[in-house]
Write a protein that binds this DNA or RNA. Structure first.
Ligand code: ZN
Ligand code: ZN
Ligand code: ZN
Ligand code: ZN
Lengths: 165, 165
DNA sequence: ACTCATGCTGTTATGTTATAACATATCGCC
DNA sequence: GGCGATATGTTATAACATAACAGCATGAGT
């Protein structure tokens, strides 16, 4: 179901923007982060992040793995899952639960809870910041939130019938 | 990973409550809803809803299937997935993306976007109402929301270290 | 009564996503 | 050179999900 298609899709909101610049920025953020936390920016890890940045859309673990394999960097699932897990733990990659897919963070550097808008038609994913969806209810219930999943599915501006196609 | 354990867990918030009554209420809501929409409340469908209500926690599709199989109501994955899909479509069961699991709705009858708090320690799941996590950002982006996934993972009151165990 | 459409269930087979467990490699350090 | 720590390579399997088709019941129309 997941295959290699769109590459020109935008992430931050659904508007167009400068891929090259945002890829470079993310990679720089990754290097800074690894240096600061004394983590190893290994070839596999670096390449996995690049793959997500190049794709600029959500990719399944096996999609990422296929690209690694093409380049001789690993061909077995754990290789991809480990690298993805590493970046998710560092906050530079987010997992989209609804798609079982992974996407490079659109706001690297800043700490944040991410929220996503997923177009069910074209599959593009936009990351925004969350607005604390639980209000007081979590506090009232005595629940201590650690991580959040916030995903909206619907139609992006380009895919709304009658929109400027 | 999903197995047959806790049965006494609460759903609406993390406090205790009357199972028997809430099960009966849900089942009644299901009957009313099927009648109103002219849908068939078949044995498999009814039993699947009952299984979720009895468990009173999130169950994986294969957990549900196992219970159906014990009772001779179907032993192949599609049987469970179809019935679960039916209830999800009707809004009486919610899918928890983070757990790949299904849970009976805690507020049957009312139309709502559900939000969940998932305890990473004991696995209990509490359903609350959402507080519109996207604020204006979706509108600003021109995104038309159809469905939402809102899930918080963390520690429930009973599992917070130093809580009244 | 017959036939047809519809909707649900049964079943086979397969596809997709994810992890456990263990082996090997690498590097800094003592 | 031995050792712990970290990362990768590999095997095998677990866990989750659906496509596709066959069969059966029900109910409407004729
Ligand atoms: Zn982000
Ligand atoms: Zn779209
Ligand atoms: Zn609900
Ligand atoms: Zn708990």
């Amino acid at each position: 179901m997941n295959s290699t298609k769109a590459t020109g899709a935008s992430l931050t909101g659904f508007g167009a923007h400068d891929h090259t610049r945002c890829r470079a920025a993310s990679l720089a953020a990754a290097e800074a982060l690894c240096a600061a936390r004394k983590l190893q920016l290994t070839p596999v890890r670096k390449r996995v992040l690049e793959i997500l940045l190049e794709a600029h859309e959500a990719l399944g673990a096996y999609d990422v793995l296929a690209r690694l394999a093409e380049e001789g960097l690993g061909s077995k699932p754990p290789v991809a899952y480990r690298a993805l897990g590493f970046w998710v733990a560092q906050g530079l990659v987010h997992r989209i639960e609804k798609l079982n897919a992974y996407v490079a963070c659109a706001h690297p550097g800043r700490a944040h809870d991410a929220a996503f808008m997923i177009c069910r038609d074209c599959g593009r994913v936009a990351e925004t910041e969350s607005h604390g969806p639980f209000g007081q209810s979590a506090g009232e219930a005595g629940f201590q939130i650690e991580t959040m999943v916030i995903e909206a599915e619907g139609l992006c501006p380009k895919c709304i019938p009658g929109a400027g196609l």
